[in-house]
């Protein structure tokens, strides 16, 4: 009655679309990365270049710098989000007046388009009329100029990301916290554990799967951030993350060096896949000596 062929038929449109738009680009960069292909050169066409593009890539300081920046951005942002999100979720487990309203407002940034988030923050920090530089200058005598100081730009990106994504962590943590059974916590309290011990030995182990999943999704999203940071700082110093760098190098208007662009794309995919896979191993709990 259930012929697998019918199953494949139902699955085929999905597979066809994903193969064309998801897998073929990958093959494309894989092949083109080994070629020299400059569209605006005298003769349009691909010339085999061996490892030439990669030789250039490993000495491309801008690229290496962008990878370092992306990692710093992701680490700062995600650590802050997890700590803050956990505290907020902890507070949401109690009952207090106006809770659901607070929660709805807190969720709001999640659904805003990244490009609009960038616009919101740009309006806040723009020199001339933005309130942030004004207040910092007037009250703290602090010169704030994200176009000039790379560290300030990076910090602003991190704060923007925290503003945008902490709600996500809060909501997943809340889901995880409400799924914790009461008995072990009560038992630990009866046994004389203090709050820190309860957290460390009871809450955290229960929370581990949700926490790892959340961190996994956040890392994968953070390292490919482009839109909001681009809108915030326009690729100025301190915010040239890998995604932005690739975008600038490979965007049709900016550069016609398609071979080199492909090799950068491929190496970025490589780094992403390795990271993704390591995290996946960590989450799926395939480590030896662990009870499954």
């Amino acid at each position: 009655m259930r012929n697998p062929r019918t199953g494949w038929l139902l699955l085929s449109p999905t597979l066809i679309i994903l193969i064309i738009f998801g897998f073929m680009p990958f093959l494309y960069v894989l092949v083109v990365g080994f070629f020299d292909w400059n569209v605006f050169a005298a003769e349009d066409g691909m010339r085999f270049n061996g490892l030439g593009n990669y030789r250039r890539l490993v000495f491309d300081d801008l690229f290496l710098h962008s990878v370092g920046l992306t990692i710093r951005f992701a680490v700062f942002a995600i650590v802050s989000e997890v700590v803050l999100g956990f505290l907020l979720a902890q507070m949401l487990t109690r009952k207090f007046p106006g809770k659901s309203l607070f929660r709805i407002i807190h969720t709001f940034p999640l659904m805003i388009a990244p490009i609009a988030v960038g616009a919101i923050w740009r309006l806040l920090v723009i020199p001339g009329f933005g309130p942030v530089p004004f207040v910092l200058d007037r009250w703290f005598d602090f010169t704030y100029q994200i176009g000039t100081y790379p560290d300030q730009a990076l910090a602003t990106s991190v704060i923007m990301d925290v503003w945008h994504w902490t709600p996500f962590v809060t909501l997943t943590m809340l889901a995880g916290l409400s799924a914790i059974p009461r008995e072990p916590v009560e038992q630990a309290k009866v046994d004389g554990a203090n709050r820190l011990q309860v957290f460390w030995y009871v809450t955290l182990p229960f929370l581990r799967p949700v926490l790892l999943t959340t961190v996994f999704i956040r890392i994968m999203d953070a390292i490919r951030t482009v839109d909001e940071v681009w809108m915030l700082a326009g690729g100025g110093p301190g915010t040239r993350f890998t995604g932005i760098y690739i975008w600038r190098v490979t965007s049709p208007g900016a550069s016609a060096d398609w071979g080199y662009g492909s090799s950068i794309s491929l190496i970025t995919l490589y780094l992403t896949i390795v990271l993704c896979w390591l995290l996946f191993i960590a989450i799926s709990g395939r480590r030896k000596g662990e009870v499954e």
Binding site: R224, I246, S265, T272
Partner: peptide
């Protein structure tokens, strides 16, 4: 598993091949 990797891929890396395609 292949489906989720599609979601996790950095879009910037696919811009050039998609543009050519």
């Amino acid at each position: 598993f292949w489906l989720i990797t599609n979601r996790m891929a950095p879009p910037a890396a696919f811009l050039l091949p998609l543009f050519i395609m």
